[in-house]
């Protein structure tokens, strides 16, 4: 009786969450899967069971190019956010000595997360534009004669914005794991003659792996699912899978958008399944 009670009350308490997820996560995914087999005319969509959308998707060279570009963005952004995020978290966790200071600096790193992504993207325009701060500075220093054209509306701008938006998704979990490393392990390493670098590579890095994995999952999925950063920062000149989907939506080609979305979802899930083999999220919180 006691046992059944526990399960029943558990489900009652979890039911609001379960209902929201069923209605706004599971049902939409199912709907997308269903619609991906439907057909479309220029103005409307009609129920059917046809593989045309997938056939078209997999036979088009554009698909492969765009998926390639998406993975490229994800990988480069991952490498940069990891390098920066790890360094920042390492500094906060092991070089800042008072807890108050640690919390204060940590908050400084996280506050932008609670502000608007759109505005944070817009705010790069005065920096990167043709007559922007970067070009003006470089010209006044005599480094270049002509303004650089590739600063804004380019792959460079896209990745810069990704790093700017998402590095804190690395900093937070890595800092969280680092703070829980037993300091006596570091002393033991030092007592045994390890220098700072050896301690970092052989003690801190392996112990921080769960945090790195969680950060990686965040950054990779955010970048792979993005469509607005690429559109905005490349001035619509570059494409990723998200833009492919949103373009189809704009043309009311929902079945085709749904098919692309299904493939994207599968890709993301495979990447996460691989990453989850390295970490148990629930234990790490």
């Amino acid at each position: 009786m006691q046992l059944r009670n526990r399960h029943l009350i558990g489900w009652l308490e979890a039911s609001p969450l379960a209902l929201v997820l069923a209605a706004f996560l599971i049902a939409p995914i199912l709907m997308i899967v269903i619609v991906s087999f439907w057909g479309a005319t220029e103005f409307s969509i009609y129920p059917a069971f046809q593989l045309d959308n997938y056939e078209f998707l997999f036979s088009s060279p554009v698909t492969y190019r765009v998926f390639g570009a998406t993975l490229k963005y994800a990988f480069i952004t991952w490498a940069l956010t990891f390098a920066i995020g790890f360094t920042v978290a390492y500094f906060l966790a092991f070089h800042v000595r008072s807890l108050t200071m640690q919390i204060a600096l940590f908050l400084v790193c996280t506050i932008p997360f609670w502000t608007s992504n759109i505005i944070r993207m817009i705010s790069w325009i005065p920096f990167l534009g043709r007559n922007g701060i970067a070009n003006q500075t470089l010209i006044s220093w005599g480094v270049i004669d002509e303004p650089l054209e590739w600063l804004l509306y380019s792959d460079f701008a896209v990745i810069l914005a990704f790093v700017h938006l998402y590095t804190l998704f690395m900093v937070v979990p890595i800092f969280n794991t680092m703070m829980r490393i037993d300091k006596s392990l570091l002393e033991a390493a030092r007592d045994n003659g390890a220098n700072g670098f050896q301690t970092l590579v052989h003690v801190i890095l392996p112990l921080t792996k769960p945090g790195i994995m969680i950060g990686t999952i965040f950054v990779v999925t955010l970048v792979m699912g993005d469509f607005i950063t690429v559109r905005f920062m490349s001035g619509s000149q570059r494409a990723n899978v998200g833009r492919l989907i949103s373009n189809d939506i704009g043309l009311l080609q929902y079945p085709s958008a749904a098919a692309t979305a299904v493939v994207l979802l599968c890709t993301v899930m495979i990447v996460i399944a691989i990453l989850l083999r390295f970490v148990n999220i629930r234990k790490e919180l």
Binding site: I29, G225, G242, I245, S246, A258, A261, L265, I272
Partner: peptide, 13 residues
């Protein structure tokens, strides 16, 4: 972790 555009698209549909 689901790409946001899927939620947008699915709920819209």
């Amino acid at each position: 972790v689901i790409p946001s555009i899927l939620i947008s698209l699915g709920v819209g549909l």
